[in-house]
Design a protein around this nucleic acid. Structure first.
Lengths: 114, 114
DNA sequence: CCGTATCCAAATCGATACTG
DNA sequence: CAGTATCGATTTGGATACGG
């Protein structure tokens, strides 16, 4: 097993810089599930997240080009968030993460480590 | 794009509970690259990590069954870490993360978000 | 060499109030 | 409704000392 090596380190760090954080993956996951969500919907969907954390997370992901923020100029305000192209290209990784989680949850008993 | 849905949420949270953390993925990555590493080698390889963070991260990953800790009873002590079966099953995800990072780094210019 | 414990600084978080 | 600002409280993190 040596498909990972020093040459993959920079891309790896780059990916982590975007995705590593307490709420980042959850936000992306949520948008991947539902395509488009308003701020309040995200807030309600992501259990335990606070206002502050969500706004911070959304801003960072937007700055990193992962999500698109669409603001409707109206009163009361309305803002919709969705994944960008870049964000969508990340979805397969979320899927493998889910698959992995599922398979490991199933094992979780007769597990003999290597 | 609706391959992710409510039914994948539990596995997703499970995966995050193991892998979400400032250093977890880097530790796993490092072990995936080199198979077996002593504590001191890990410490040297992972840039910026401190003693405290590394020991904490290793312990959690060990508790979650991702890595195997092999202690040699000798003076001076020697401890080797490596990925468990479970940890190894996670490596493909690291690879896709690297691939994704690489492709996005390449784009990073003529990028028109969706 | 590896790991634990401790102390203190710094970053993060949660609740809340306020603006457009 | 969406977002910013602020202020304690809690958590995390770094440096260091010590023990097996």
């Amino acid at each position: 097993m040596d498909t990972l090596c020093r040459s993959t380190q920079a891309p790896f760090e780059y990916a982590l810089s975007i995705v590593n954080g307490k709420w980042k993956l959850k936000i992306i996951y949520e948008l991947a599930c539902t395509n488009t969500l308003r701020y309040g919907e995200l807030k309600r969907n992501i259990s335990k997240i606070t206002h502050k954390m969500l706004t911070a997370g959304l801003k960072e992901l937007e700055n990193d080009g992962m999500i698109v923020r669409k603001e409707f100029c109206q009163i009361p305000p309305k803002v919709e968030y969705s994944l960008s192209k870049k964000g969508m290209s990340f979805v397969p990784i979320l899927e493998s993460l889910c698959d992995w989680g599922k398979s490991q949850q199933i094992i979780e008993n007769g597990d003999t480590n290597a």
